[in-house]
Each structure stands twice: as C-alpha cells, then as structure tokens.
C-alpha cells in the first residue's frame, strides 16, 4: 500500500512527472530560443512561471459554467498522469499492465484535448468558443492517424499490452525499423495533440487571443500548463516505448539513461518542427492530416499486417 502510494505520488508518479515535465519544457524553450538566435530562459524559468501563475488570482467569468471551469484542469492533469503508469519506461515492465492497456493509454491521452474543448466551450467567451471548435476539429484530424500509427506496431507484436509489446521488440530490435512511417506519423500527431506550431491553431494568439484558454488565469491556468507539459512527456514516452525499444534489458540505471535520451530526442524533434514551420490554417491542417498523414498511417498498418503474416506464422 505504502509502496503504491509512493509510486503514485512520488516516483514515477506525480512529483517525478511534474519535475520532468518542467525540465522538458525548459529544454524545449531553450532549444527553440537557441534555434532562433535568442539566449533563452534560465533552467528554473518554467518552474518560476508555474509558481507565479499559481500565486495569481483566479478569475472565473460570470457567464462561465463555474463547476466545469474549475473541474477541467484537474481532469486534464489526472488523465495524463494516469496514462503514464501504463507505459514501460526503462524496462520492459510498466508499473501497471494488462492486455489492452495500449488502447487505454491512447484514450487517456485524448482526454486532455477533450477537456480543452469543454473548458473553452464553458468559458462562453467568443474567442474561447472558436478555440474550442478548432480544438475538436483538429482532434478528429490527427487522432485517427495516431491510432493507426500506434496500433500498427502492436499488430506486428501480436499483443494489445504495451509491456508485452516492448518485450517482443526487445527480442527483435530490428523489427522496429519497419515502423519508421508510424514513428513520423505519431510525431506529427503528437505535435497536434500538444497544440504547438504548426498546429497551434486552437490558441493562435494573433487570431483568437488565447483560444480555449482566453478566460483562464491563476491556478487553473497553471494546472493546464503543467498538464500540457506532462502530456508532452507522456506522449514522448509512449513514442519511445512503441517505436524506440532499445536498451531496455540493461538494468535500471542504463535503462533510465536510455529513456532520458529517447524522450529528449523526441522533444528536440518537436522543438525543431515548431521552429521551422509557420502556423497552418485549420482547413489546411485537416486536409494535410487526411490526405497525407492518414494514408501514411494506413500504409504502415498494411505493411505490418503483411509482415505479421510473414514473420510470425
């Protein structure tokens, strides 16, 4: 019991994720700044921002649905933290595991996006509502390709459990090379999930002020911010577990180093992506996802379907 509590709250649970999320936000911001010829923030900046926000007054608009407005940030945070427990990090074994946890993790990662939508919608401000609509529109565009891209490796491994998947790929590391299209697709989808350039359409500040989060302030905004930071870490961990199953059998210490390197690599790629691209329009984003990303994911599914017949008779 005590051990479970420790796992939940401290390691690898909430506290670890909190620190790790902030650290990754720093890495992302620093890289983004350096790529833009700027100096960038000091290492404690994300934490300072969090403390500052948390200390500020919470303002809830009179028109807004006060209960939903308060609940949504907590929901977002809870769902991303929960998702983390089912992902194998530095060994082939995750904290909790059952057959089918892959689907649960993907669904848990959809919840934050839904809370963004509900939060924006219940803010009842014009800008939030436009942002909310865009969030949902965007969700339908990237979610299906993401699903297909992550299910494809599972198909090859012949299991719906993330832990068993990593066991399979740990035994056949070369098979990971087949999933390269899926890796690219899920990187793009993750960028969309995190609502970052070029997919920051729901919160495009030059168009709709702050989008879904226009009305948020203080602790609630801080909670959303940390949820997004953690979502980045969880998303990167998921990609690492599914597509980069290397160095898992080397024991906890080396495994952890490998894990850090993998997450850092994913975060760095995402930072690079937002440096070199401009924001798309919502209809361009949808077209891009359905015409290019979804067929690519489908292709990956097809490859793995054939491969699983050939390699795993």
């Amino acid at each position: 019991m005590a051990w479970s509590l420790f796992n939940l709250l401290i390691f690898p649970g909430f506290l670890f994720l909190f620190v790790f999320g902030l650290a990754m936000e720093f890495v992302d911001r620093k890289l983004y700044a350096r790529l833009q010829n700027r100096i960038g923030p000091p290492w404690f900046q994300p934490f300072a921002d969090f403390v500052k926000l948390a200390a500020k007054e919470d303002i809830i608009p009179e028109e807004a649905d006060s209960v939903m407005f308060r609940l949504m940030p907590a929901f977002a945070l809870a769902s991303v933290v929960t998702a983390f427990f089912y992902i194998p990090l530095w060994s082939t074994q995750s904290l909790f595991s059952f057959n089918g946890d892959l689907i649960v993790v993907i669904y848990l990662l959809t919840i934050p996006t839904l809370t963004f939508f509900l939060a924006g919608w219940h803010s009842t401000s014009l800008f939030s509502m436009i942002g909310a609509t865009r969030t949902l529109t965007q969700l339908f565009a990237y979610e299906v390709p993401l699903f297909m891209a992550i299910l494809a490796p599972a198909l090859l491994a012949g299991t719906w459990s993330l832990s068993e998947m990593t066991v399979f790929y740990d035994q056949h590391p070369a098979y990971a090379a087949f999933n390269i299209i899926g890796l690219i697709v899920s990187l793009i989808a993750l960028q969309g999930k995190l609502e970052r350039v070029p997919f920051d359409i729901p919160e495009a500040e030059t168009e709709i002020v702050g989008g879904t989060f226009t009305e948020y302030s203080g602790r609630f905004l801080a909670m959303f911010r940390i949820a997004i930071d953690i979502e980045a870490v969880v998303g990167a961990s998921l990609i690492a577990a599914v597509f980069l199953p290397f160095g898992l059998g080397l024991g906890a210490a080396w495994g952890f180093v490998f894990y850090l390197v993998k997450v850092l690599a994913v975060i760095a790629l995402l930072a690079l992506l937002r440096t070199v691209l401009a924001r798309l329009r919502i209809e361009q984003m949808v077209i891009f996802c359905w015409r290019i990303v979804a067929p690519a994911a489908l292709f990956q599914l097809l490859i793995n379907l054939i491969l699983s017949g050939v390699l795993r008779p």
Binding site: L35, Q36, N37, R38, V197, P198, D200, A204, T206, T275, V276, L277, A278, R279
Partner: peptide, 11 residues
C-alpha cells in the same frame, strides 16, 4: 509573427 512563424520574426 502574424502567421505563427516566430522564427522569421526573430531572424
């Protein structure tokens, strides 16, 4: 900046 391409702004 208006089209969300802040890198161009910084450069």
């Amino acid at each position: 900046h208006e089209i969300g391409f802040d890198t161009l702004l910084m450069y």
